[in-house]
């Protein structure tokens, strides 16, 4: 136990050192660093969505709206209140907290509305947020906000990603995580074994919203502008795709999903629209062969890898034996 903690700390420090090195010595092209930052930010985004859509098993489309609230609030905070770079964490926190508040509002309908009906409500929520932002001149109306101070850099992204992974991991392994999964399996049974469903859903939605909000804040401070159109249908679809591609109910899955999709979308710009065609086909193929996503309800672990190898070896051995029998 202690040994592992030390190992994790060393790993963290090495990562941090690597980020500093990359930033200061120009080891990697700036465009590549940008992609790495995108991947990191979307990992946080997908982790957040996965809490509700994966672990809690609710088909929610509220993430675009929640991301918008987080992004806008943090940006406004950086522009008007926390104006120096070292106050960036405060802006992030403000954005995250604002998202938690709207996340709680979204949790309320989930108490008695289910399934696709809830999907429509959450969709409506996202589109309402977008529309309100378009109409509020205070936040720039359809033009959005600019210039937002460019505070996001590789180190901040790295820190936030590590924090998000650690927190989400702790969260899903705690009683809250167990409650979420119990509700996903059978809501009535979980109520009857003393799970407070309303409370569990509220907590899940707010923690989810916190991370989605943080990711929104990071992206705004990376691009140094934001506008309502970034939070429309395509943001909703993007989030869904990454969650269900990588794997529902899995932290590894969230990371893989964000990684694959962002690399596809960001680094294959040269092939233009064809990346979306390829992306669409990849989605179909993955769903056919892994309906729960690449890492659906599983985590990458050393024991898991060993098991997988053992299974492959078994199958090979059996195949060989089968062939011998056949001859």
């Amino acid at each position: 136990m202690k040994k592992r903690k030390g190992f994790h700390l060393i790993l963290f420090a090495v990562g941090l050192a690597l980020c500093c090195a990359v930033m200061n010595f120009g080891l990697i092209q700036t465009s590549k660093i940008l992609i790495i930052q995108y991947v990191g930010i979307y990992i946080i985004f997908v982790l957040g969505i996965n809490l509700v859509n994966g672990y809690l098993g609710i088909f929610s489309l509220a993430h675009a709206g929640i991301m918008a609230v987080g992004g806008y609030t943090a940006s406004l905070a950086s522009m008007h209140i926390f104006t120096s770079p070292w106050m960036f964490p405060l802006s992030l926190l403000t954005g995250g907290m604002a998202s938690v508040l709207v996340g709680l509002c979204v949790a309320v309908p989930s108490f008695n509305v289910r399934g696709d009906y809830l999907a429509i409500i959450t969709l409506g929520f996202s589109l309402i947020v977008k529309s309100i932002l378009q109409n509020l001149e205070v936040v720039g109306g359809p033009r959005g906000l600019r210039p937002i101070p460019k505070y996001t850099n590789l180190i901040w992204v790295y820190l936030c990603v590590v924090l998000a992974i650690v927190m989400v991991n702790r969260f899903v392994k705690s009683k809250y995580g167990r409650n979420m999964m119990a509700i996903r399996e059978d809501q009535i049974a979980s109520e009857l074994v003393s799970v407070d469903v309303r409370n569990a859903k509220s907590v899940a939605f707010s923690v989810s919203a916190f991370f989605i909000g943080i990711s929104g804040a990071l992206i705004c401070h990376l691009l140094s502008y934001t506008n309502p159109n970034s939070y429309g249908y395509s943001a909703i679809i993007d989030g869904l795709v990454m969650v269900y591609l990588g794997g529902v109910g899995s932290i590894t899955g969230s990371i893989i999903g964000a990684l694959i999709w962002q690399i596809l979308v960001q680094s294959l710009r040269t092939i233009g629209t064809w990346r979306w065609i390829i992306g669409g086909c990849i989605l179909v193929v993955i769903m056919i062969f892994q309906p729960n996503g690449i890492f659906g309800n599983r985590e990458l672990s050393i024991a898991g890898i060993k098991r997988a190898f053992a299974a492959i070896r078994n199958r090979l051995a059996k195949g060989a034996a089968g062939k011998k029998d056949g001859q």
Binding site: S174, K175, Y176, R178, N179, V193, S194
Partner: peptide
């Protein structure tokens, strides 16, 4: 363990 949750006191 899911059924124990009424008797767990720790918070978020």
């Amino acid at each position: 363990r899911a059924a124990c949750c009424a008797h767990i006191k720790y918070g978020i």
